[in-house]
């Protein structure tokens, strides 16, 4: 049986851990709210953007665009978006697992795979593969549109120069506070957007384009990539905090369980000590009587 003092100090230690995990849970929930607000305020932008894109694509569109160029796929680039910090359960490792699965599939098909890592955790997990072409670290805490622009622009340049024939983004999709799922979406070549709600828009008549519809498309396509990347980053931001909230909640509960077990142990040890002391006294008294 461990000594009273040992158990006592262990209980205190676990209590301190529980305090920390509880605080982290609260910080994560506050940050989650911020991330969700950011997502919320980005939604009208995406909605409008898709509307305009499908308007354009549905209109008198002729000609082809380099960014929409469907080439036979030989090299695949995966843009892996993870968080910069750990302690958020299996969130990052789930994303990395999906990356590894995709890599195996593509390589079995005889395609070369390279990575662009956004977020430290993905980079740490993947750097040993030697396939990381570029990495963006320590930006997930306070990322802005210009970060997304940089990432998307660089990926597009690589695509145009023939460094990759297919670019996918892999990120943790925020489904709800309780579930985040690793997801992949195609980034390049850009697929034409088809929006059902575009039908009613056409009643308002043909648009006057300035410059031509094709030239507008040339400008919009890179912007569209920014939107996709920024959206994925927002999702990861929210998912990270949600995952951390759950992880920290579990940790706090585990601490509580340990504390209650240890308290039982402590009480038992205390009882044993008291009993032993009583036995001593009684034994002593008996011995005196006999003498």
């Amino acid at each position: 049986m461990p000594s009273l003092k040992e158990v006592k100090s262990k209980i205190n230690g676990v209590k301190k851990t529980a305090q920390i995990t509880k605080a982290m849970n609260m910080v994560a929930s506050a940050k989650l709210r911020g991330a969700q607000e950011k997502m919320e305020s980005f939604r009208p932008y995406t909605a409008k953007f898709n509307e305009a894109m499908s308007n354009l694509a549905g209109g008198s569109m002729s000609g082809s665009f380099e960014l929409m160029d469907q080439r036979p796929v030989q090299t695949v680039e995966l843009v892996v978006i993870t968080s910069d910090r750990g302690l958020c359960g299996s969130f990052n490792s789930n994303i990395v697992k999906l990356v590894e699965k995709k890599t195996r599939e593509y390589e079995a098909d005889g395609k070369a795979v390279s990575y662009v890592c956004v977020g430290k955790k993905g980079y740490q997990a993947l750097r040993k593969t030697g396939k990381v072409r570029k990495s963006y670290l320590d930006i997930m805490g306070t990322f802005q549109m210009f970060n997304a622009r940089e990432i998307a622009g660089e990926a597009a340049e690589n695509f145009l120069s023939g460094g990759s024939d297919l670019v996918e983004v892999i990120f943790g999709e925020f489904r709800s506070v309780a579930t985040q799922a690793p997801t992949s979406t195609d980034l390049l070549p850009v697929k034409p957007v088809v929006d059902e709600s575009a039908e009613e828009q056409k009643i308002s008549g043909e648009y006057i384009y300035e410059p031509s519809a094709e030239e507008i498309m040339e400008v919009l396509l890179p912007l569209y990539l920014n939107v996709l990347v920024y959206h994925a980053m927002l999702e990861v931001g929210a998912s990270e905090h949600a995952a951390r909230m759950t992880a920290m909640d579990n940790a706090t509960n585990a601490c509580k369980d340990i504390i209650s077990n240890l308290t039982i142990l402590y009480n038992k040890a205390r009882q044993a000590a008291i009993t032993a002391e009583l036995m001593d006294i009684v034994g002593g008294a008996e011995a005196l009587k006999k003498a």
Binding site: A52, G205, Y207, I208, Y209, E210, P211, I216
Partner: peptide, 19 residues
């Protein structure tokens, strides 16, 4: 500031799309 120079838009303008 549009692609082809500054432009002004008043009420009931025709459908228009510009960078």
């Amino acid at each position: 500031p549009g692609y082809g120079g500054d432009f002004g838009v008043l009420a009931n303008h025709a459908p228009f799309l510009s960078t």
